[in-house]
Design a protein around this nucleic acid. Structure first.
Length: 293
DNA sequence: AAGCCGTGGGA
DNA sequence: TTCCCAAGGCT
């Protein structure tokens, strides 16, 4: 029989072992929290940190970002990846500035209506910026719950309301404690209950872990699809955007043609970048980041 | 609702 | 080297 997972044990562990990340400092605004959450989507902390600091210095309020051009925003995004996030954040900033008095909404449904903000990010902002009591479910939390609660080796495919309900059931009643508990669950998944080689010996809730009690069985769910990168459209789009990030002057198509030999794929990617609004064509037929010419 | 959307680092 | 994966969202 395993002990029930005690929220206070996790919260205490977090207080002692949680990292001192810049967006966790008490003076960080809700806007700062939102920017961090968008940047952290599928992107490690170490790569986000310097970019987040630069963004906060340049654009301390939503209206500051809204006043920048898309090109400036994309250049400042740098190599964080998935640059459509930057465009959506710019859109969200505009909506916050014009429709919400330059104040990041605290309500989950209002946050969900903003571009680029989905089920995870909306609740993360509500909880971490405003101390709201709501389940915050990311890949770390799904893994921790799969193991500690369900005794599985890893989380299966995301989807359904299953994970949200699982975490809701674990959430302490007290609002402030609930928010810290959510941060603690995520931190545990990132520092201890990791995908590969979990450090169970250092786990504060090992006594309450169903996976541990079950003898740490291997993951037996459906195989996770592997994402290729080299040579894919994503890769070629990255090459094209890298050229445009490096110049302020629009470039002729010949300059873009030089980065990838397969002309068919190259043109398809350039077209998709134009459709996505990540690239613009000037009146004289050259190409540039959007909003600057 | 699977598949797409960038990039870099660690094992 | 190759493979996996990292605070998801959108269509």
């Amino acid at each position: 029989m395993s002990a029930r997972l005690d929220p206070h044990v996790l919260v205490d562990w977090f207080a002692r072992n949680g990292r001192d990340l810049p967006w966790r400092r008490p003076e960080t605004t809700a806007w700062g929290v939102l920017v961090s959450e968008i940047m952290l989507q599928q992107t490690p902390v170490s790569r986000v940190e310097p970019v987040w600091l630069a963004w906060m210095a340049s654009w301390p309020r939503p209206s500051d970002l809204a006043a920048a051009t898309q090109g400036e925003v994309l250049r400042a995004w740098g190599r964080l990846g998935y640059p459509r996030r930057a465009l959506r954040l710019h859109e969200a900033a505009t909506a916050i500035a014009t429709e919400h008095g330059d104040v990041v909404p605290s309500d989950v449904d209002t946050l969900l209506a903003l571009p680029g903000i989905g089920a995870y990010t909306a609740r993360a902002v509500a909880a971490f910026a405003y101390g709201r009591r709501c389940p915050v479910v990311d890949t770390n939390v799904r893994r921790v719950v799969a193991r500690a609660v369900h005794g599985a080796g890893d989380a299966g495919p995301a989807g359904g309301g299953r994970d949200l309900a699982d975490v809701e059931a674990l959430l302490p009643e007290d609002e402030a404690t609930a928010a810290r508990f959510s941060a603690a669950l995520m931190e545990l998944g990132q520092l201890v209950c990791t995908a590969r080689s979990p450090r169970c010996a250092a786990c504060p809730v090992i006594g309450a872990c169903a996976w541990q009690h079950a003898g740490r069985p291997a993951y037996d769910g459906p195989a996770k699809p592997v994402q290729r990168y080299a040579g894919t459209d994503r890769y070629v789009r990255g090459l094209l955007l890298e050229v445009l990030r490096g110049t302020t002057e629009p470039v002729p198509k010949t300059r873009l043609d030089a980065v990838w030999s397969d002309g068919g794929q190259r043109d398809r990617c350039l077209d998709s970048l134009l459709v996505d609004g990540l690239v613009e064509q000037t009146a004289d037929g050259r190409f540039a980041l959007p909003g600057e010419h």
